[in-house]
Design a protein around this nucleic acid. Sequence first.
RNA 1: GCGAAAGUGGCGGAAUUGGCAGACGCGCUGGACUUAGGAUCCAGUGGCCCAAAGCCGUGUGGGUUCGAGUCCCACCUUUCGCACCA
Length: 836
Amino acid sequence: MQYRPTEIEPKWQQRWAEARVAEIDVTASGQKLYMLNMFPYPSGDLHVGHGRNYILGDAVYRYFRMQGRAALNPMGWDAFGLPAENAAIKRGTHPRVWTLGNIERMKKQFARWGILYDWSKEIASCEPEYYKWNQWLFLQLYKRGLAYRGTAPVNWCPQDQTVLANEQVIDGRCDRCGALVEQRELSQWFFKITEYADRLDAGLDTLEHWPEKVKLMQRNWIGRSLGADVDFHVPALGKPVRVFTTRPDTIFGATFMVLAPEHPDVPVLIADHPDREEIERWITVVRNHSALERQEAGKEGRFTGKTAINPFTEEEIPIWLGNFVLPQYGTGALMAVPAHDERDFEFAKQYDLPIRAVIRLTTGDTTLPFTAKDDTGIAIDSGPITGLTVPKAIERIIQIIEERGLGKGTVRYRLRDWLISRQRYWGTPIPMIYCEKCGLVPVPEEQLPVTLPLDVPFTGREGNPLAKHDAFVNVACPQCNAPAKRETDTMDTFVDSSWYFLRFITPRDDQKIFDPVLVNRWLPVDQYIGGIEHAILHLLYARFITRTLHDMGLLTFEEPFTRLFNQGVITKEGFKNAHGSWVAPAEVQWRDGKPYRGDDPLTAEITKMSKSRLNVVPPDELIARYGADTERVYTLFIAPPEKEAAWSDDGVVGAFRFLGRVWNMGVALSETAANLTIDKQAPTANVTRKMHQTIDAVTSRIERFEFNTAISALMEFSNALADAPSRGAYEALLKLLHPFAPHITEELWAMLGHDDLLLTSPWPVADPALMQEDTVVIAVQVNGKLRGQVEVAAPAVEEKVFEAVAGNEKIGAWISGKEIVKRIYVPGKLVNLVIK
RNA sequence: GCGAAAGUGGCGGAAUUGGCAGACGCGCUGGACUUAGGAUCCAGUGGCCCAAAGCCGUGUGGGUUCGAGUCCCACCUUUCGCACCA
């Protein structure tokens, strides 16, 4: 009987679905475990690269099930977003129809991979029953002053005609379409995440089971820096200008001041400047520059003609405007210490401004500029702090600044408030109303949800189609009943995903966002799995919203995800022509080992598997030929799961052959009459040992997410078993293999006469006593030279080792009267006895 | 520029606390079975060498140690993240 995966896999998928094996009663008791894969954007077809994420999660889920845990593994859809709207514009289908169609396709795909989710808890963020609670959340934040409307310079994508969060601007470009982002002053809705900056930063220290990399990225993004605010008096203004510095110890070297062109005092400072108009023109140019253009322009500045008084040297120092000073950070003004700051140095050189060293390096190096932030720097020519090391000088000067009332020690963050307005249709309507009389009026909670109208035209021009939907826009003011207008902006979809993990516990509750008692029992999520691309955006927002709900008294925890795992991407060779366009592999011809399309030479490149690069491997064909189990085993075996992995169509057959061998062994064991010679029950001592070693290895490797070596251990076990088949050991193999290859193992389990599901049978337990080797080889080294080897029975306590070695005729002579330096005993390995 | 991670066969990758480098798999070579093989099975496969013995081998150069892929110092390369954040 041959292994034919396509004949057995659908059967088991149906069995699992009919038995509703993954459905869980959240009110029942049991040792709970909440597993979660980041819910996907329903973009359409899944390829084998996507599969890694879900296959990995399913393997872990099945393992915990077999360990007897009450494991919840839900799935939902991050269903709002731009691609649905773009598809609507391009093809004339409604975003909702397009989205729901994709969801259906993707659900089928999950089933074909043999992935078990508790579909009774499915959610889709585009449904009113879900986004109603987005709106509710918005209103709670509004009530607490955490959602506000503000005018701010925002990132504007001219291509997508919408504003973008800072997080969505990559290298000065829109992360969706790649267009150069412009700066615009617009009135928008913000969430006040900055109020939580310190807690979000401090909380990272409690996340023991998060990748260091992600924590570091978040820490850098939050950008906490310790320093001081200091006032510099400006006679021309008759008031001080405040600067922020992380290096107050260098204040004696502050030889000029630089303001952002946007700084509010600038108009007054340049009011009587002879070249005022030129400066104003320059300011306008700088303001309209994107962040990228601003940096590419190099350092530029203008002298205001005014001066400030350095409060410590009491010198008059010139006040400049500089394009490199960011209006959003600190106070938008800085004291320039060119001797000890590279940017200030560059600016000083360019405009010939004075440079004064106020730190001496203990290394003796005097090349300026240098920034000695540690004990290698000593303050010089700095009045009361002269002679102190930099850290001590900072501490002391802040004291003096505070005593003299010049300012105070402060903490500043790079993090900015979260801009949530989008001028887009396919998102959650922001539940606010503009009334001429009453001003901003929140939609009363009992009127939620503010439903997104479905009958809108999609032209792709003139901004948000919602704004042209009169029935939606025109509304009576909830306070005075006068005609008023709805907010037509929708929310950033990151709002949807910032709390969805709470909703899975009670997904159909139409009275409240979630049940606090159940949520506090089931959360935080024990194991969260998803891509590293969400290291900042999604995870930071989720941590923020969790804290706001905690502060509302609804949650008892502040961190939503206890363990986080980021799987690496799957890569494959893609082909580019001379213009940089991707070419489908089917069109590629190879000549002299080089790729061509027709006569056009192509370049081959290993890149992330994606639709746009035309290098995707669709799972359908693969599954039709080798089965889902083969894809699963190969995907997990290919590389450590956190690493990038190159897909190889050849490599797949290795997994298929392995499963084929397991299959043949099972068939042979089940055919009693034909195989009377096979010992069907008791494994040999060698196999027993190997079995217990394998149980131990696979168990600990799954716990550590080392699936590639877990599978290699199973291959070794299977190879050992092939020489001495036995039913007991084979059944252990099936159990250990089940999380990776669920269909074939269920089939073989049934073939061996079991009528329960393998999924529900208990995970095997390793007996450490049975894992030990019978004998160990001792290598004897005398004075660094290998003198011989001797074999002793295990378990060999150290005395036994010594007796055996001393009793050995050859080796005994070498070691008589010498001192034993070290004995090393490792079960299953070579043992060294080191003698001097 | 700053920060982090990583460099091991033709390839993906193994290797608790320093203890037989290259597990497992792909590919390749030879063989078996076949009308056939892009199926299956068996054997071999780091390099030098006809082979054995032997020698050399974990990015480069030093060091510690009886012993280094692993620890320390310097350097090179690659990848990722941030990027005028005062």
